[in-house]
Structure formats: structure tokens, C-alpha cells
């Protein structure tokens, strides 16, 4: 996986901080995600992984620093000295490049799988119902759910629901996909099918930022692994560097805990 380091990252985070009230949960985060790069965010619970991802999606307003999506400033107008929120239109314009998949799937339960996938195609992209359905079927097929198109979320397994959620995002043809622990709410035997879809996506060249506790996935698929601890990036590197090289004690401890938890045979 040799990536030419070109100078137009899809996502760029500069010195970004985030406070909830008086507590700072992200401190001076710097990140660059190149086209087709797969970046995995790992770190202990409460370290701010979800918050970072939600800031990149502007579901949370970041407090200082900058975030650029494909070169466009996210969420704020920065022409003047005083920072002002952009209009919803502008925000949606920048957001159009992003898809996001959540831990809890967040499917809309009153719509079928196909309905979930086509909703934004019809309402936002203004496709005709027929075009949207066609496209929806094609994408559902891609995630292996061709025959489940007319099922409602409640009639699908967790793994299937999460694949519908991925399809829903993919339908909008984003240039980067954000995943927040997409397999953490799944039964162990269903994790594989979702990871497989994500691996296929990576192979097809999708740019992805993935918060995960699946170290195997990070080791196999990621180009870059970022270790976040108490709101700060402690280490950033290739999977090899992170998992096998020299590392700060906090990361050492984190990985050791992970190994202990998953070891069932000594």
C-alpha cells in the first residue's frame, strides 16, 4: 500500500480542540487523511475518539483550530476575525463529501432497508423514485443484501442493519467515510460480515476514518493507525510501527489490556 504523498488531503484537522463546558476532551489534534487512505483511531474508552469523529462530521462544534474537508473549511466562516457558523446550506455542501456509520446503526425504523438507502437520494439528490430505487438496489447488492431490500430494520439482524447503514451512506457517494465503532454493538459472529464490507470498500479505494477496537482489522487494513489518549494524539504511524515498534507506555498498556482480554489460551 504505497501512497504517493500528494498535497491535497481529503480531511485535514489543524490544532483542533474541543471543550464540553469547562472540560477539554480534545487537545490540539492534528490529522491529515489522504485520498484512499484508511486511518484507524484507537484508544481507551473516553479518550475522545467519538468526539473527534463527530467534530469531523460537524455533529459537534469544535472549539478552536480548523478542519478542512477537501480543502473547504468545515462549519465556520473564517474570513472575519470573529468566527461565525456557516449557513446550513454551506454546511451541507461541505458535508456532502462525507458519510458516517454509527455504533448503534441509527437506521430509521419506519422505512425499509431500501427506503433508508433511497431517502436522501430522493430528498437531497432529487433523483426520481425509479432512479433512486435502481441505485438503492445496486448498492444493497454490493453489501450483500439484495434480497433484504424490502425488510424493515426490525426484521434484520444487527450485522444486516449495519450493512444497510453503510449502504445508506455509500449511496450519497461520499469521498470519505467515517465509522464510529461499527461493530461494537454486534454479536461476535456478526462482526465478520460487516468488517468484510469495510475491507472491500478499502480495496476499492474509499477513504476511511475508522474508530475501532478490532485490532486485527486495524493491523490488516489500515494505512495509518492513530492512538488517542485523554484527548491527545500520543502516537501516529503505520500498523507495523504501532503494533510492533517502540511505543509510549500508555499505548503499551492499552495494547496489553487488549491482548489480555482477547487471550483465551496461554
Amino acid at each position: 500500500m504505497n501512497k504517493q504523498t500528494q498535497d491535497s488531503p481529503i480531511v485535514e484537522v489543524q490544532k483542533m480542540s474541543k471543550n464540553f463546558g469547562t472540560t477539554q476532551v480534545l487537545k490540539n489534534v492534528d490529522l491529515k487523511v489522504q485520498p484512499s487512505e484508511v486511518m484507524c483511531l484507537i484508544g481507551p474508552s473516553g479518550s475522545g475518539k467519538s468526539t473527534l469523529l463527530r467534530c469531523i462530521a460537524f455533529l459537534e462544534q469544535y472549539s478552536s483550530g480548523n478542519i478542512y474537508i477537501e480543502g473547504e473549511m468545515l462549519g465556520y466562516n473564517d474570513d472575519t476575525d470573529i468566527r461565525k457558523l456557516t449557513s446550513t446550506n454551506e454546511l451541507n455542501h461541505v458535508r456532502r463529501n462525507m458519510g458516517m456509520v454509527f455504533q448503534q446503526f441509527n437506521l430509521w425504523p419506519h422505512m425499509t432497508a431500501l427506503g433508508n438507502v433511497t431517502e436522501a437520494l430522493v430528498r437531497v439528490k432529487k433523483l426520481s423514485r425509479r432512479e433512486a430505487d435502481e441505485k438503492g438496489h445496486a448498492i444493497l447488492k454490493k453489501v450483500g443484501l439484495a434480497e433484504r431490500a424490502l425488510h424493515y430494520p426490525a426484521q434484520l439482524s444487527g450485522g444486516q442493519q449495519q450493512r444497510v447503514a453503510i449502504a445508506r451512506s455509500l449511496a450519497m457517494e461520499p469521498s470519505v467515510m467515517l465509522f464510529d465503532e461499527p461493530t461494537s454493538a454486534l454479536d461476535p459472529e456478526l462482526v465478520g460480515e460487516v468488517l468484510q464490507v469495510m475491507k472491500d470498500l478499502a480495496k476499492d479505494g474509499m477513504t476511511m476514518i475508522v474508530v475501532t477496537h478490532e485490532m486485527g482489522f486495524a493491523a490488516q487494513v489500515a494505512d495509518t493507525v492513530v492512538f488517542l489518549d485523554q484527548g491527545e494524539i500520543l502516537m501516529k504511524g503505520s500498523p507495523k510501527e504501532i503494533f510492533q515498534g517502540e511505543k509510549p507506555p500508555r499505548l503499551e498498556q492499552f495494547l496489553k489490556n487488549y491482548m489480555d482480554r482477547n487471550a483465551f489460551w496461554e
Binding site: 458535508r95 430509521w108 425504523p109
Partner: peptide
């Protein structure tokens, strides 16, 4: 659930579309 609204926002539905299509029916 808030998450559903997040999902709708990130996919680009407008405030009104979210109310009419996602919130009111449920």
C-alpha cells in the same frame, strides 16, 4: 433516538425534511 437525527443530518436532509420524514411518522 438522537443518533437517527445525526444520521439524517450527515446525509444532508434539511431541518424540515427531518421533521416531516423522520420525526413525525415515528
Amino acid at each position: 433516538p438522537k443518533g437517527q437525527l445525526d444520521a439524517a443530518k450527515i446525509i444532508g436532509l434539511s431541518r424540515l425534511q427531518i421533521i416531516v420524514r423522520i420525526q413525525i411518522p415515528q
